[in-house]
Nucleic acid binder design. Structure first.
Length: 561
RNA sequence: UGAGCCAUGGUGUAAUGGUAACACUGCAGAUUUUGGUUCUGUCAUUCUAGGUUCGAGUCCUAGUGGCUCAACCA
């Protein structure tokens, strides 16, 4: 397992409750630690999975154990190799290497053999009830279920029927194999759970070899056991499955894997249901699973989030059993923290207004040396051209500035970053009163932070040369949802109604020329605007940047007052 | 009229039965050629009621509140 060290993540933290379990096991002499990350390949991994990945791989790492990647591919109708591939890519990108790559489908034959064993022990039977009958006879949480009329079939008959199920003699849904436990059990999962269903479906790995497929409950614990998983860590909603998990393992007398549950990750403004995310993709609400507005790992990668930031986030969020809703801002904090150290700084104007330096020679070009990253000298410097006509951010000028505004305004002087001090002398407007141009004068002695008489200015703004600026498409992303989408949306609306109509806006920005080569995920901080990632599709001819996170901006609050 | 899980600042997560802490957020200030970063300071927490104890966030009892479970999904 290889993870580059991330600063800040090595702080001493107390043990989470799963680590306590492991340390207790080690104290008892059970020193081997084997975990697994078991996604179903029916969608892309999201930030919630990232927490699970960091936990499972982190546990193995911490205790000198191993972590497997196992695909829980027992439902062929929902699964696809595209998802298998994306999951592997995302786990690797997060910085983890799995000890073994397994598939529940690798175990289909063994699982089948064990099922016959269960039948022979009288612990399983073939049920001919319809789906509807099964549902009705299961009872409710308050009312006990009733036994299936087929529950007392002989071992021979069960065996024969089960073999014929496998042989493909029956249509989908005609029969199931059920565990014989207790139809009055207070835990619904223990009321003769279905072990196998008939599904004449093509499986992405086993092809058409099988027409019966094991259910999660029958496959998961056994798969863990086959892999000698010591600590099977899953989310809280599986806690009610634990008695069943243990029941199968005990009845089969196989390696005693044990299950532990932790609370899944929830985040503000974020939808974590794979089913819902799939709907967004299928309905083309987003461009795909890696649309930067999605909460998927692939989307975050494209947005410019770093693996280290996500790992640090997962570490901070912790592991407990309490329901939680993490503020999206916490994730962004870790992204900012990481990017602050590594992202190169560039100047870019998203909403331009022209500035003419009236006392600067026409046709002259001057190169200014700009620091790429004030936090990292090794990032070097670059030359940026300066001319008589520039563009600055429209927000960086106010004709009637409020009291604490210290950027450009009539008669006020500001520093053009890394170049001259300029003073606004005149405001040019069109017939409708819109500002079209600002006329400024510059102080020729104010290079390199100096000024002719030692005066200082508070405002420092970014700029680009009108002649040299490159155009680029910038995608500004906001949260996909304007508010929390409930699991059950109110009558008359769908969860699509909760989508933020301004989740994606595109602007044409003007960039300093050094950005022309940027492509393929390079990250930049556009000064006082935010962090941007050069889109993978970006070319020097068509520059496209995705916004990652916004800088902390107390000045915008001031503007709102 | 079920079973299981959970309850600590605004948000998360800690605390051998012994001074409730850490991070994020908020607020205030300092530094700063990014209103960023960095630094300093600061506000704010044990669901309720009993009980055990010299001492309870922690143990016990009862209550309250929240979550999960009735797919041939995982």
């Amino acid at each position: 397992m290889s993870v580059e060290k991330i600063e800040g993540a090595e702080n001493e933290r107390s043990l989470n409750f799963i680590e306590e379990v492991i340390e207790a096991d080690i104290a008892k002499g059970n020193t081997r630690v084997q975990t697994r990350f078991p996604p179903e390949p029916n969608g892309y991994l999201h930030i919630g999975h990232a927490k699970s990945i960091c936990l499972n791989f982190g546990l193995a790492q911490k205790y000198g154990g191993k972590c497997n990647l196992r695909f829980d591919d027992t439902n062929p109708v929902k699964e696809d190799v595209e998802y298998v591939d994306s999951i592997k890519e995302d786990v690797r990108w997060l910085g983890f290497e799995w000890a073994g790559e397994y598939y529940a489908s690798d175990y289909f034959e063994q699982l089948y053999l064990w099922a016959e064993e269960m039948i022979k022990k009288g612990k399983a039977y073939v049920d001919d009830q319809t789906q509807e009958e099964i549902r009705q006879n299961r009872g409710t949480v308050m009312v006990a279920g009733v036994n299936s009329p087929w529950r007392e079939r002989s071992v021979e008959e069960n065996l024969d029927l089960f073999r014929r199920m496998r042989a493909g003699e029956f249509p989908d849904g005609a029969r199931t194999l059920r565990a014989r436990i207790d139809m009055a059990h207070p835990n619904m999962l223990m009321r003769d759970p279905i072990m196998y269903r008939i599904l004449h479906a093509h499986h992405h790995r086993t092809g058409d070899k099988w027409c019966i497929y094991p259910m999660y409950d029958y496959a998961h614990g056994e798969s863990d056991s086959i892999e000698k998983v010591t600590h099977s860590v899953c989310t809280l909603e599986f806690a009610v499955h634990r008695p069943l998990y243990e029941w199968f393992i005990e009845e089969l007398g196989i390696f005693p894997s044990r299950q532990y549950e932790f609370a899944r990750l929830n985040m503000t403004y974020t939808m974590m249901s794979k089913r819902r995310l799939l709907q967004l993709v299928e309905n083309k609400v987003v461009t795909g699973w890696d649309d930067p507005r999605m909460p998927t790992i692939a989307a975050m990668r494209r947005r410019g989030y770093t693996p280290g930031a996500i790992r640090a986030f997962a570490d901070r969020v912790g592991v407990a059993k309490r329901d939680n809703v993490i503020d999206l801002g916490l994730l962004e904090f870790f992204v900012r923290e990481d990017l602050n150290k590594t992202a190169q700084r560039r100047m870019a104007v998203l909403n331009p207004v022209k500035v003419v330096i009236t006392n600067y020679p026409e046709g002259q070009t001057e190169m200014f040396e700009c620091v790429n990253n004030p936090e990292d000298e090794s990032a070097g410097k670059r030359q940026v051209p300066f001319t008589r006509e520039l563009y600055i951010e429209r927000d960086d000028f106010m004709e009637e500035p409020p009291k604490k505004y210290f950027r450009l305004s009539p008669g006020n002087e500001v520093r053009l970053r890394y170049s001259y001090l300029v003073k606004c002398e005149d405001v040019i407007k069109d017939s409708e009163g819109n500002i079209t141009e600002l006329r400024c004068t510059y102080d020729p002695d104010s290079k390199h932070g100096a000024s002719s008489d030692g005066r200082k200015v508070k405002g420092v703004i970014h700029w680009v040369s009108a002649e040299h600026a490159k155009k680029a498409e910038i995608r500004l992303y906001n949260t996909l949802f304007t508010k929390e989408c409930p699991d059950d949306v109110a009558e008359g609306e769908t969860f699509f109604d909760y989508i933020n109509p301004e989740s994606l806006t595109t602007v044409e920005a003007l960039l300093e020329p050094s950005l022309a080569e940027a492509a393929g995920g390079d990250k930049f901080q556009f000064e006082r605007v935010g962090y941007f990632c050069a889109d993978a599709d970006s070319t020097p001819e068509k520059l496209v940047f995705n916004r990652t996170v916004t800088l902390k901006d107390s000045w915008t609050k001031m503007n709102k007052e």
